[in-house]
Amino acid sequence: MTNSRTHIAFVAPAIILMLVILIFPVFVAATLSFTDYSLGNKTFNWVSWENYEALLKRSSYKKMFSASLTYVFIVVPFSVVLGLGSALLLSSLRFGSEIYKTIFFLPVMATLLAMAIAWEFTVDPIIGVANATLKSGCEVKWFYSLMTGSWRGGEPLDSWYGLGCVEGMPNWLGDRKLALGTISFIGVWQAFGFNMVLYLAGLTAVPRELYNAAQMDGADTAWKRFRLVTWPMLGPSHVFVVTITSIRSFQVFDTVEALTQGGPSKATYVMVYAMFEKGIKQNLVGIGSAITIVFLAFVLILTLTQVYFVNRRVHYS
């Protein structure tokens, strides 16, 4: 069989497709990032590092990096902590854990674009239930004092909620200061169920005896057992969950394109959206390619960090 040539027929289609669809485009993007090419133009000029300099200097690209990084730094910690928290809660339940697991996984399955629009209507200033609920809370004394902080002696009108009761509740997607937070909230909503399932799988791999042993050694509270046993034993899950979530967060596009188009005033101008807007919508291929290459660098750094940690064996087996 070693003499047969069948293996060529078996691997050739895959190799050709890999080279044409995956490898070659990366070189194309790298090359075009040093040009001022536009689709439809016959010729183009080499502009050396001009596109990359623009990325570093122009304020709209500074906003782009800041939006993407802020999004990642909000979504990753929140969805990881919520994922781990709900996994721990579910694994300690006596009944009902399967139902919660199903519900929390629903956002992972559902078409994000459709759900983004549903969220948009939820937080809409006019027809949204979110603000309607907050508004009706203004009349409820205990809720009002809790939200404004007046129960501990704060001045109600100094808090956003007290102000909202008087001047109208915030416009979650239309306000420059809130839009990125709202988009990140949808990101967390979508991602934490995925992390929860990964952590649940990680938890089943923790040997029961370790908890008994830890208890005998004096870990008498649940928190101590968590810190001594669960947390370190979840090492491989942590690495996987954190890198996957970061990579996915860098790729956020659907919610931004459908709800804010990068606005208001570039507050949600994340990298993939910027790449789409510059490179494809405005046909500024050079700058779009430069964004592509920087994006690729970010993702590669994250992936290689993961590989490094996995090879160092962050697990205790």
């Binding site: 070659f24 075009l32 689709l39 291929v285 390619s289 994006f295 690729l296």
Partner: peptide, 18 residues
Amino acid sequence: CLLIPVHAIALPLYLMLA
């Protein structure tokens, strides 16, 4: 190739298809 994210080849691939 597992390392290459889809979004990183979208623009060049779009140009090639165009």
